[in-house]
């Protein structure tokens, strides 16, 4: 194979990996949108909050230490000992479930039957709140997160791909980040687990019933409020996974919450209501973005990653206004 072709494959592969990371975030959006019709803008901030909490537990920070110090004049910062990664992840999950419970109790319960835009705004308010809360609890400095996932380039893959190049060509093998590979594997496991859960458990069936029709679900005795807590907990779990992945990749900091903006084109491309859509959309966006950056970017001065995904999604939308896998929009008077 020629070097150009191999470079193309490398870009393509890295795009797929990046796409998986986007899908992870988009998945959380889709879960909540399907079950409650809420476009949850706070998903990105939930990922940030989960990652912050995880780091806080692992390093043994005292929550709200800055606030406590400011009010009582103490000098608290650290318990002195952190928790092992596994325990910290479990505890963070508990926090996310508690958060889901509180969100249902304090916000959603009071906004039943409101227009979608009002609910959307409420989740933006929630995003602000969580952003402030996360910073207030754990401080706003950039933190590193290491839960023991492999990272760095894969030498094995480099060696394998080097043999593919034509004889005598200047080629040093493809670079692929091990962290991205593990993220992809985890995403696959997550999606399989989620679809098994929604197919074969009673709770999963109840979730799908609610997604289908709120009123009908209520009338057969499904508790809407319990389902919402469960859905937000699952979304919290997905956020935690996304937070771990993105946090290990680029550090836990405010910009982590901006991955929500990366997930939006994935969503409109795949359709708001489809889990496979989130995956396929993520892959298309990831690949499209990387290829565009590599081949179109140099022509217009680069750094087009920020908006290219949106334009790509928009181009798809013009032909299918409900996204690739979304439910068909039927309008009548």
């Amino acid at each position: 194979m020629s070097v150009e072709l191999l470079n193309f494959f490398e870009t393509f592969l890295n795009g797929l990996m990046a796409g998986v990371m986007y899908s992870l975030v988009a998945l959380g959006f889709v879960l909540i949108f399907k079950a409650s019709g809420i476009f949850n803008f706070a998903q990105g901030v939930m990922a940030l909050f989960a990652a912050l909490t995880l780091v806080g537990f692992m390093t043994g920070q005292v929550p709200f230490s800055h606030l406590i110090n400011a009010i009582f004049g103490t000098e608290l910062h650290n318990w002195g000992a952190g928790l092992p990664a596994f325990l910290a992840i479990l505890l963070t999950m508990v926090v996310m479930v508690a958060l889901a419970f509180l969100i249902e109790k304090l916000v959603l319960k009071h906004l039943v039957n409101q227009e979608p835009i009002i609910l959307f705004m409420a989740t933006i308010g929630l995003a602000y709140f969580l952003e402030g809360l996360g910073d207030l609890m754990w401080g706003s400095d950039v933190k590193t997160l290491d839960v023991g996932l492999p990272s760095g380039g894969s030498f094995w893959w480099e060696d394998v791909t080097r043999t593919w190049a034509a004889q005598g060509a200047e080629y040093y093998g493809m670079y692929i980040d091990l962290l991205d590979v593990s993220a992809a594997l985890i995403a696959v496991v997550l999606v399989i687990a989620l679809s098994l859960f929604s197919q074969y458990t009673a709770t999963g069936r109840a979730l799908r019933a609610v997604a289908d029709d709120h009123q009908a679900a209520l009338s057969v005795g499904i508790s809407l409020r319990r389902i919402w807590v469960i859905v937000w907990s699952i979304a919290g779990f997905v956020a935690l996974v996304a937070g771990i992945m993105w946090g290990s990749k680029s550090g836990v900091q405010f910009s982590l919450s901006l991955i929500a903006l990366k997930a939006l084109p994935v969503l409109i491309l795949g359709g708001f209501t489809s889990i496979p859509g989130a995956i396929v959309g993520g892959l298309i966006i990831g690949v499209g973005e990387k290829l565009a950056e590599a081949y179109i970017g140099p022509m217009v001065g680069g750094a087009i990653e920020n908006w290219f995904a949106y334009v790509l999604a928009l181009a798809f939308l013009l032909f299918r206004p409900q996204g690739l896998f979304g439910d068909r929009i039927i309008e009548r008077i």
Binding site: A70, I118, M121, G125, G132, D135, L136
Partner: peptide, 22 residues
């Protein structure tokens, strides 16, 4: 610290207003 509390309060107030008077 004040900035963090402020963003939290604004987020909370937005939710409060939406609930109280959409």
């Amino acid at each position: 610290l004040a900035a963090h509390v402020q963003i939290m309060l604004i987020g909370g107030l937005i939710i409060f207003f939406l609930i109280a008077e959409p």
